[in-house]
């Protein structure tokens, strides 16, 4: 097992290097010279000054040197400063990550609690041959849920619960009047973004849980479990669910990975100051250091999370572990 993990860890190093190269190349491909733009904004047009500043920031060095400097600084935690806000990029990223983390965690919990439960129940209902109306309904609802794009769900919810009914706040993480650690206020702000972010995945996991469980319940070892005289709950929730959990855990892990990397469209709609919104804003503003920092962080986090899911998979499915 530890050898498996070590092998997988080693395998992502070239990938990380490749990603950093892509991001670096992208920053160089961006139109416009950052120093000139900066000086233009300050109404200074002085070629000598431009050159001096370029020297100072190492922009006249050959590209490999620039890349190396950027990379080594990044390893020291220095990702530069935001051109727009003048703050350290790492601080901005940290704050964005914190907000994204809270809504991502809430979404995954929602997916597990609602999606998995409904999926497993739908499968059991299907297996026990309940009336067709019920089984059909339980099969169609998740398809509907996963079909509607998240931002459309978000808009509908904002219109209904935020504007028509006025029950819930529709933007930001907190009410300026509430204290910094007012958890109820944070919770209220979390509800709509969480649902908007999670609804499609709730549908997806519901359907996945249902289909997997139905397949599993047809397996011989489920017959065997019945033939052993096990109580029903043990057949369904120990023998059935345990194998069903393998793909479900993978799916939840991948979901968490993609949510943690920020859904910029939903964060934009809810003005949720997460990593996605930060990325969109700095992209629009051409705030290159922030775009680079955010991209590199999102990509490497995503790589690591996918690796974690693979390892998790090996833990829950013994067949993979020994393969």
């Amino acid at each position: 097992m530890s050898r498996y993990i070590a092998r997988r860890l080693l395998s992502i190093i070239p990938l990380l290097i490749a990603v950093s190269l892509v991001v670096f190349a992208m920053s160089k491909a961006l139109p416009g010279d950052p120093v000139e733009i900066f000086l233009q904004q300050a109404d200074i047009a002085n070629p000598e000054l431009v050159n001096a500043m370029k020297d100072k920031y190492g922009l006249n060095d050959p590209l490999p040197v620039q890349y190396w400097t950027w990379l080594s600084l990044m390893f020291q935690g220095d990702m530069g400063e935001s051109i727009r806000r003048g703050e350290a990029v790492s601080d901005l990223l940290f704050r964005g990550m914190r907000n994204t983390f809270s809504v991502a965690t809430a979404s995954v919990l929602l997916v597990i609690v609602v999606g998995w439960t409904m999926g497993v129940l739908s499968a059991v209902v299907h297996n026990r041959s309940w009336p067709q109306v019920i089984t059909r309904f339980l099969a169609q609802v998740p398809v509907l849920m996963l079909s509607i794009p998240g931002f459309a769900v978000a808009v509908f919810m904002v219109l209904i619960f935020g504007i028509s009914l006025g029950w819930l706040p529709t933007s930001g993480v907190s009410n300026p009047r509430a204290g910094a650690d007012d958890l109820i206020d944070l919770g209220k702000h979390l509800i709509l973004p969480t649902i908007g972010l999670a609804l499609a995945s709730v549908g997806g996991n519901w359907r996945l849980a249902r289909n997997t469980m139905i397949e599993v319940l047809r397996e011989d070892y489920i017959r065997m479990a019945h033939a052993k005289g096990l109580p029903l709950w043990r057949v369904y929730f120990l023998h059935g669910l345990r194998t069903t959990l393998v793909p479900l855990l993978t799916s939840a892990g991948l979901l968490f990975g993609s949510l943690l990397t920020g859904s910029f469209i939903l964060e934009y709609i809810f003005a949720w100051p997460g990593i996605g919104l930060l990325l969109v804003e700095s992209t629009v503003n051409r705030d290159v250091p922030v775009v680079m920092g955010a991209t590199i962080m999102i990509a490497s986090m995503y790589i690591f999370l996918n690796l974690a899911v693979d390892i998790l998979y090996a833990i829950v499915d013994p067949r993979v572990r020994y393969a």
Partner: peptide, 8 residues
Amino acid sequence: IGALNPVF
């Protein structure tokens, strides 16, 4: 093989 639960 199918009659034995693969994860236990």
